[in-house]
Simulated assay, not measured.
Amino acid sequence: MPTAEDSTPPGAVAPDQSTAEDNKTTSGTPRSSSGWDGKLRIEKNLTLANPEALSDPEYSDEENVVPGESINADEDLLDDYPPDEEEIDCIHARVSAIPSLRLERFTNVKNLCLRQNMITEIEGLSSLASTLVELDLYDNLIAHIRGLEDLVNLTSLDLSFNKIKHIKKVNHLKQLVNIYFVQNKISTIEGLDGLERLRNLELAANRIREIQNLETLKGLEELWLGKNKITEMKGLSTLSNLKILSIQSNRIRNISGLEALENLEELYISHNALTSLTGLECSKKLRVLDISNNQVPSLEGIERLEELEELWASYNQISEFQDVEKALKDKKNLNTVYFEGNPLQLRNPTLYRNKVRLTLPQVQQIDATFVRVS
């Protein structure tokens, strides 16, 4: 969760942003304890190794795949690793073909990280099938999912920041717990049937218009859909174990479809087109609610959220402290509120903080600043 010292949390998603660095500098949107959509736990000044993955709309078409630069190996990149090494990291090493790494000489690899290379094909991994559990191919040039047939022990697969248009050939990986497809060109949620162990699905920054085909993912606990083109929250009713839903920076006008999500604890729905909080009445376990950057004029609808700990409501149309008091004063666990950019703050910025303190004496943090205890 953000702190007073870190009021611009890394990884926040805002409209009209398409790079990792842009996403790192947005203010006013929180992240969960495990990070933002897309596992963007990366350096603030990071530059993508393959920026064309974001700019060329046809790059993932079969006939247009541009091969990575072939580099004759004048050194063994993995020469320092012993044959029984369990974790191999080969990051930003200009690797264009996995077979060139000669991974078959390693007999016990569990975690393989090939981030920020120039890999176009997933290949040469069959020799690791009996031991490999985590495969990270973030920021490469992969256009099609294939080559995973033998990797049946995988629990984590990261294909974020590639050129993938279609989710295919992963639903045989029955042990998967985490799967990341952030910042690709995916328009349809598909090909995930039967992944009953899946707990975390990250599909942020794609081209998705509809939430669908999630019925069999009954164990899912985290669903990250920020920065897509979704207009309504539907197709969620079977996800009874869902704890975190991030659907910020979409095109949602009203809150609906959450009635069956009785275990939902965190909802991130900032940067949409909300004008009301009606629809949250059944979400009684919510601890974190982010409605920043909408058009909400009132907090009516959250009176029953007795477990609420953090409310992010910056840049809405909330104008009355009486409304805030009615909705939040009885929330004993409430420790953080954000109301900057609302009429109740803009009308009298000098008195604003004191009024919030008097209205909500239990709160420990107002916007980016901790409340001083006298």
Rank of each mutant, 00 (worst) to 15 (best):
E340D: 09
L277N: 09
L305W: 06
K329I: 13
L261A: 01
V288R: 00
E325H: 14
L239Y: 04
E309Y: 02
Y268D: 00
Y268G: 00
I247A: 05
S276N: 10
L261K: 01
A313K: 07
L334A: 13
P343K: 07
N272H: 06
S246R: 02
S292C: 07
L280C: 09
Y268T: 00
N293T: 03
T275D: 14
L286K: 09
L299N: 04
L308N: 00
S319L: 08
Q345R: 11
E262C: 04
L299K: 08
S292M: 01
P297H: 06
L242G: 00
I269V: 15
E320M: 09
F321A: 13
T278Y: 11
E265S: 03
E300G: 06
S249Y: 04
S246K: 00
I255W: 03
T275R: 06
L286E: 04
L289I: 11
R253A: 15
N316D: 12
R304V: 07
L280Y: 04
P349K: 14
A313G: 08
E266P: 00
C282K: 10
C282G: 03
L245Q: 10
R304W: 05
E340Y: 07
R287T: 10
N294I: 05
S256H: 13
E306F: 08
L280T: 02
R251I: 05
K285A: 01
R253T: 07
A273F: 09
S319F: 11
N333E: 06
N263I: 05
E266A: 00
P297M: 05
S256K: 14
S270R: 05
E310S: 04
I291H: 01
N254E: 15
R287S: 12
C282R: 05
T238P: 01
